[in-house]
Nucleic acid binder design. Structure first.
Lengths: 244, 244
DNA sequence: CAGTGGTCTAGACCACGGG
DNA sequence: CCGTGGTCTAGACCACTGC
């Protein structure tokens, strides 16, 4: 399947920026110029540029042009904490997953209630993630049986997402997350080797499919000294009434 | 100044959803139908619908239509923690700001270095935020003098954002944030009345203006039991090369 | 003033969903 | 098959920037 022109152009421009053909502070060619360069209409160029804008790669300034933003600006290490993801990207790391539990269960009550679920049968998976033999996160997942009837120990040990998307063809579309800090249970404290504190960072996610159906509830409990979350956001629409 | 049509339409549709004219699960009229309804072209309708999509209000399904999403899905209270913002929205609350310090300073070294700043003169403001006489957050701000030469005690006591945007006409465009959990200093522990733990949630923000210039560095230290962050995100583009 | 990005139009063709 | 949303075009007018 052919990808849309505007996505190809967006990818091409992103590559040119990555390969220093345009560097931070440079202006990209104007929209009419890009339009001629790629032999597409200006609206198509604008869709491509909007992708870069959303990704925080460029900034558009009316009357002037599109500026390349310094990537280092977006997320550089101000603190020295290493997150699970960052540790994960260092290829020498030794990542491991230990299955703590895998069983049939019901979606937790508070979820059933708030989402008014009719089908509540789920698979419960609890996993401990380790990097270099150090425990980092305890993940608990509730996955509706309606969409994923069975999960094997093997599948739980590798990436559930990969299983869902590639093997089952499920299309995951969006998720809402909350991040809080809460006291951990004794079990979790032991699993994460917590001694100095009883606090963990709790990330709760509700995941939905492309057809808007609710699909998975995840509770991740992180060692506080290994947790890091990076957010990049444009200023909210100055509210013309769009805010709920 | 006249707002763009697509924003007016987006606001109108949002209002209709808010006022239950369309409820969760309903399909909005099709794009051609809306196009006729509002007497605009279909592309304009699509821009309006994209606003609702980004805001997490609707979900578009190819071949079917645009479904209204249950707002409760996006962010409902799974835990009972009350964040500063939530407390703030309860109108009976008694919010207060105590200025801890206000002085001239240099932008911290790590910021100067990473952003290669040439002008580093800044105003430093440290503030303690209280709700119902309970300390919640310690905010430290470094604001470049280049854009805001002077900040009075009065201005620091109310909203700095309001001062920047309304009085000075600065246009804030985007920010990058990191969230971590770190041990607090003794001073901060005292200010936040922390006894059970020495950990605080640290949110560091880099704020930029519309013309891409860096403008403000903020370090917020939150009581861990009062911190809550909510995130709603569509699945990242399946990566056609857009990821840096 | 000319050049930039922001909005808008009236068409067109396509891929997908469901009968 | 038809109706849906996804993409694309070749124009147009506007508001803003900078000279």
């Amino acid at each position: 399947m052919m990808r849309a022109k505007y996505l190809q152009i967006a990818a091409d421009l992103t590559n040119k920026i990555k390969h220093k053909q345009y560097v931070a502070g440079d202006f990209l060619p104007s929209e009419p110029a890009l339009s001629e360069l790629y032999n597409v209409s200006r609206e198509t160029i604008r869709k491509a540029l909007n992708e870069l804008l959303d990704a925080g790669i460029i900034q558009k300034i009316k009357g002037k042009g599109s500026v390349v933003i310094n990537a280092a600006r977006i997320a550089f290490p101000i603190s020295n904490i290493e997150s699970f993801d960052e540790l994960n990207k260092q290829k020498q790391m030794n990542a491991a997953t230990k299955i703590l539990e895998l069983k049939d269960a019901q979606m937790p009550f508070i979820i059933r209630k708030h989402l008014s679920l009719t089908e509540t049968a789920a698979t419960y998976v609890a996993r401990l993630r380790l990097i270099n033999h150090e425990p980092i996160v305890v993940d608990e997942d509730y996955i509706l049986k309606k969409y994923v009837p069975d999960i094997s120990l093997e599948q739980a040990k590798s990436s559930l997402y990969h299983y869902f998307e590639h093997d089952l063809g499920l299309e995951i579309d969006y998720a809402s997350k909350t991040i809080t800090v809460e006291p951990a249970s004794k079990d979790v404290m032991e699993q994460l080797h917590l001694t100095d504190t009883n606090l963990v960072v709790v990330v709760r996610s509700l995941t939905y499919l492309k057809d808007t159906s609710f699909f998975q509830y995840t509770i991740s409990q992180h060692r506080p000294d290994k947790f890091k979350f990076v957010d990049f956001a444009h200023r909210k629409a100055k509210n013309g009434g769009l805010i709920l």
